[in-house]
Design a protein around this nucleic acid. Structure first.
Length: 271
DNA sequence: ATGGGCACCTGGCTGC
DNA sequence: TGCAGCCAGGTGCCCA
């Protein structure tokens, strides 16, 4: 499911219920996620207090005494804050039970999500160490993208989804940002000029900010921490709108496959 | 280094 | 109705 706006929405939703509370128990029902959850965590986590809940790229970092949990939602994962006694649903794989009586419950039908524990600095974990810049932070600009794209032949849409280039942009928001920038997703990354990269940076920032404001995009599985869906789907210009008229020029939206992922674009607005 | 393809997994939908 | 086939918000890894 989740790209940056959905992960950020989840962070904002779960943070108030966790910070300042202590982990009473960590319960694993299905350890076979993307990587097997270490059973030693059941002992490791109990008794530790939560200091903060941060986001890096599409990862959530739950800072505890002496270390951090690194959570990923994969394609179909979601986190909810519930009363600890709430009845289980299929694919509820683990709970972080807090001493407040609330619990953080992870549901993930496809099990592409993950959970790691790092003692010490979470950002030095191998999964996070090589990530590119945050798109909403200073320093992510046209000059940066131009430099990174030099001599690169990959399509610009695939380039923008590379988490070493910029983090948080997945299949929905890559298509949406390129539509806003008026750039064809097929264009080679190294053949996109500085002016177009400036428009792409603007497009990425705008679409991510607007999506966060709407609580993210719900297509299938995603729900925020209180169980509500995201409402940005209604604001999408191209994603999953094949054959429907472009909201700007009226021509039918087209779909094709790039790097085994569907790309959506307007043949009139994007060149 | 770069680009391309596969794998991991379940569920929902389509079409025969 | 049943079932095969296809598709889905991600990303690590292997190969050329």
């Amino acid at each position: 499911m989740p790209e940056l706006p959905e992960v950020e929405t989840t962070r904002r939703g779960i943070r108030p219920a966790l910070v300042g509370s202590r982990v009473e128990a960590f319960v694993v029902r299905e350890p076979r996620l993307r990587w097997r959850i270490d059973r030693g965590l059941v002992r490791e986590l109990a008794g530790r207090s939560v200091h903060d809940v941060r986001r890096r790229a599409k990862y959530l970092l739950v800072d505890l005494d002496g270390g951090s949990l690194i959570l990923h939602l994969g394609m179909s994962g979601s986190l909810r804050v519930l009363d600890r006694a709430t009845a289980l649903l299929p694919h509820d794989h683990y709970d972080l039970v807090m001493d407040s009586g609330r619990c953080l419950r992870f549901n993930d039908p496809r099990r592409f999500g993950s959970l790691h524990w790092v003692a010490g600095d979470a950002l030095s974990h191998p999964l996070l160490a090589t990530l590119g810049p945050e798109p909403l932070a200073a320093g992510f600009d046209a000059d940066y993208l131009v430099a990174k794209a030099r001599r690169r032949k990959v399509a610009v849409k695939t380039f923008l989804m590379d988490q070493k280039i910029v983090v948080g942009v997945g299949n929905i928001y890559a298509s949406e940002a390129l539509f806003r920038a008026g750039v064809s997703p097929r264009r080679a990354a190294g053949r996109v000029g500085a002016d177009r990269y400036a428009a792409i940076v603007k497009g990425i920032r705008a679409v991510l900010r607007e999506a966060i404001r709407q609580g993210g995009t719900t297509l299938r599985d995603y729900v925020s921490a209180d169980g509500t869906p995201g409402y940005f789907r209604q604001k999408l210009f191209v994603y999953e709108r094949t054959g429907e008229p472009c909201r700007r020029c009226g021509r039918p939206i087209r779909q094709f496959v790039q790097g085994q992922r569907s790309t959506y674009y307007c043949p009139g607005c994007q060149t």
